[in-house]
Amino acid sequence: MTAPATTESPYTTDTTAVTAVATLPAEEPATAPKALYVYGISPAGIRTPRSAGVDGAPVRLVSESGLCAAVSDAPPRLRPRRRDLQAHQAVLDDMAAQGPVLPMRFAVLSPRTDALLSQLRADATHLTEQLESVRGCVELNVKGTVVPGHFADLVRRDDQLRTLALRTRRRPDYEANVRLGEAIALGVRREARRAAREVIDRLAPLAVRTVQGTTDDEQVLSASFLLRSGDEARFREAVAERARACGDRLSLSVTGPLPCYSFVDPRPATPAGR
């Protein structure tokens, strides 16, 4: 449902939405419907979040078909400023404290209230199922970065590296040192990736669902875990245990609890052929 804010789609996302709102003509009639900034969707009946929204706007609820969306008037210019990112998160925290929530990412807009209500009505079954799938759950994200300092032990355990190190020591030159350095760096990353797989293998059984994110040569682990709220402490203990076990290869960090961004899709899949 990603589309320019001038269409009937209620969920306009990211930079497309920002441009559409930021470039409204100066002569736009004062009576034209205002675009809405959408924070998240919850079951109907929650209290209106007390936190101020993006750009300090008051937050309100719009309800339809047993669902409600927390919204505010979209600002004339929308930028990912720290205070607005924090405001977005604060509204979601208020909603999550009352029950399950389908969080929208920053800068999701709906062109008009009637379009949003229409979409809530059309997607009510799917959205309700999504809400039930995260009821009583939180998201924790675990990241792992390479620890570069264990190369001496790595050289002792790796026959090829040991041979290359001995050869470089006997005939030291610039190219030999470069080759040795590159080989060690590759080995360190390989060991860190192996440790990352061990972390996933140990943590995934504790979660309801697991989603792995993008990685690179330095951050070799990025995974989000959907947990029952009561399992959070046990999960953190398991992360700490893995941090002790692989701390010479992989530095672990945990972020959360977070709204369940990685485990919900507010838009139903489009059937094949449409």
Rank of each mutant, 00 (worst) to 15 (best):
A3T: 05
A3K: 02
A3M: 04
E8H: 14
P10M: 01
A17D: 02
A22G: 08
L24D: 11
P25Q: 04
A26S: 13
P29M: 01
K34E: 11
A35G: 10
L36V: 10
V38P: 04
Y39P: 11
Y39V: 15
G40E: 06
P43Q: 03
A44P: 08
G45C: 08
T48I: 11
S63K: 03
C68F: 01
V71Y: 00
P75V: 01
P76S: 13
L78M: 03
R79W: 12
R83K: 13
Q86T: 15
D94K: 00
Q98W: 03
L102Y: 00
L109W: 00
L109G: 01
T113S: 12
D114K: 03
A122K: 15
T125A: 14
L127K: 08
Q130T: 09
G136I: 08
E139A: 09
L140W: 11
L140K: 10
N141A: 13
V142L: 00
K143Y: 04
G149C: 03
F151P: 08
A152I: 13
D153P: 08
Q160N: 13
T163R: 15
T163F: 09
L164G: 05
R167W: 06
T168A: 13
P172F: 03
D173V: 10
N177F: 13
N177H: 14
V178W: 00
A196W: 00
R197Q: 11
E198N: 14
V199L: 04
L203D: 03
D216N: 12
Q219M: 14
F225N: 09
L226Y: 02
G230K: 01
A233F: 06
F235R: 07
E241C: 04
G247E: 05
R249W: 12
S253K: 02
T255N: 04
L258C: 09
S262T: 15
D265M: 11
P266D: 02
G273Q: 02
G273K: 02
R274E: 10
